[in-house]
């Protein structure tokens, strides 16, 4: 197992290197010149050129890349072109809201989706199944911002239960945190739930047809026990894979949700940086997102051991 973890961790290095090269090339081969934006309204051509030199934009591409990569090894993600602050600080400020939003969403989605999926599979073909599946398909047919606005309209404006926007750190005030996180997490949770519930149902249906499940039934074990102990446990491997891969989808939703609810997270940081061509920030955030994604999926692979004793690493 230890050897496997080490091997998998080592395998992320070339992937991250490729991501780094890819993102760097993408940005530096695009039109748009941050130097002109920085130079301002009255700048002469010479001033723009001076800024380009200062930023190192006149160096050959490979030199720029090596400088940047060398910084990465020192843990230096560069400096934002606009605010002049270190990218690592900008990211550090934004990690908590995004992380907590993602985590809360996953908790909501998983606790709702798995029981729903199991019930749908158990009652397959009945109206319960159809209702669950219709809600599930609807869940990812709605753009999250429409849902987000509807929840603000209902939960904040009409009922006044939740704040309209913003974020309170869990370390500052736990009730404040809960009040702020509820609506955004529900918004995203519905989409993510839909995905997991569908997968749970599909896998459960397959598993329920397996011999050992029939045997369990034949033995006269109670339905609940068969469903959870025998069927669900075996279905968890593909379900966790879905949860992991679905993270990519979730991150997309986070970007939009953060902007609806004005949550100062990484998603908004990225969108702002992209719209302003703040290269160092875009590069930094994409690297962080990719690394998280890769590591989380590794973590999920490792949890397979929990669900399926046959899997050993």
């Amino acid at each position: 197992m230890f050897a496997y973890v080490v091997r998998r961790l080592l395998a992320t290095i070339p992937i991250m290197a490729l991501v780094a090269v890819f993102v760097f090339m993408l940005l530096h081969m695009s039109p748009g010149d941050p130097a002109v934006v920085i130079a301002g309204d009255f700048a002469s051509v010479a001033q723009v050129e001076e800024i380009r030199t200062q930023l190192g934009l006149n160096d050959p591409l490979h030199v720029q890349f090596l400088n940047w990569a060398a910084g990465l090894f020192r843990g230096d993600l560069g400096t934002s072109i606009y605010s002049g602050l270190p990218v690592s600080r900008l990211i550090g400020q934004r990690i908590e809201p995004t992380f907590m939003l993602t985590l809360t969403t996953m908790i909501i989605a998983i606790t709702l989706a798995i029981p729903l999926g199991v019930i749908a599979a158990w009652k397959v073909g009945t109206w319960i199944d159809r209702a669950v599946m219709t809600v599930a398909v609807l869940g990812f047919s709605l753009p999250v911002f429409v849902l987000g606005y509807a929840l603000i309209l209902g939960g904040s404006v009409r009922l006044g239960w939740f704040p309209v926007q913003g974020y309170t750190s869990i370390f500052t005030s736990f009730p404040g945190f809960l009040r702020h996180i509820t609506l955004p997490a529900l918004t995203l949770g519905l989409v993510y739930m839909a995905l997991i519930a569908r997968m749970t149902r599909a896998t459960m249906l397959e598993v329920l047809n397996e011999d050992y499940v029939r045997t369990a039934y034949a033995k006269g074990l109670p339905t609940r026990k068969v469903l959870i102990k025998h069927a669900l446990k075996n279905a968890m491997v593909p379900i966790s894979t879905t949860i992991g891969l679905g993270l990519a989808l979730l991150i997309g939703g986070v970007v939009v949700t953060e902007s609806v609810f004005a949550i100062p997270g990484l998603g908004r940081l990225t969108v702002d940086a992209v719209l302003r061509t703040d290269y160092p920030v875009i590069q930094g955030v994409i690297l962080v997102f990719s690394l998280t994604y890769v590591l989380l999926n590794l973590l999920i692979d490792l949890t397979y051991v929990l669900f399926d004793p046959r899997i050993r690493y």
Binding site: I15, L26, P31, L275, I286, F289, Y293, V294
Partner: peptide
């Protein structure tokens, strides 16, 4: 695949 698809798409459109 490790780059969140929506972020990649936003970056691509914004830059192109």
């Amino acid at each position: 695949m490790s780059i969140p698809s929506i972020l990649l798409a936003i970056a691509l459109v914004a830059l192109w």
